[in-house]
Amino acid sequence: MILIKALLLYLLACGLGVADEAVLTEIAARLAKTPIAQGDFHQHKQLKILHKPLVSKGTFTYDQSKGVIWKTLTPVVSLLLVNESKLLTGQGEQAVPAAFGKVFKAMLGGDLAALTDGFNITGTDRKTSWQLELSPKDEMLKKIISTMLLSGDTELRWLEIREAAGNVTRITFDGITHPAQLTEEQEADFERLSP
């Protein structure tokens, strides 16, 4: 995914990351480079107090300049739209929740400076797949998130968020494509984000 690629390049350029430079270069080289990515996601959220996971499925669209469309199809249909300055959900415009909001935006919206400034990053690159581990530096963020794991090949395939409270969210991405342009529906969704 382009944003991961860009992130890695950014890490290299700034020399801020602690990951082995060679590994990051390799990973960056493997990632597909397009401004638009879309696909299906499968989210598996395990909350400590519930004896079964919250499972949701849907589609996502990433546009380098416009932001992210996160469309949940099951168990309830809902739409989440986010860019650098705005977050829209079924309940209307929301504040991006403290600290975590920034991470989410950074993951899906490409706010790379936030990730590199806020996390210690280590990585491994194997023949079939690569993996990155991000742990927050910020004290406030640490109270919410302990680590985040990212894994993929030419795309980001898998993302795991381990919360400090013990809840774990696993998101897998499938059927990723890189269309040259957005569909009318996607354009209309992004239109709602513009001020």
Binding site: L50, W70, S78, T89, A98, F104
Partner: peptide
């Protein structure tokens, strides 16, 4: 109830999930 499910399943629903208990 529907809105609750929406919030809990949202990728930003960490705060609500923490309150759920």
């Amino acid at each position: 109830i529907r809105q609750n499910l929406e919030m809990l399943n949202s990728p930003i629903g960490q705060m609500q999930a923490a309150d759920l208990e």
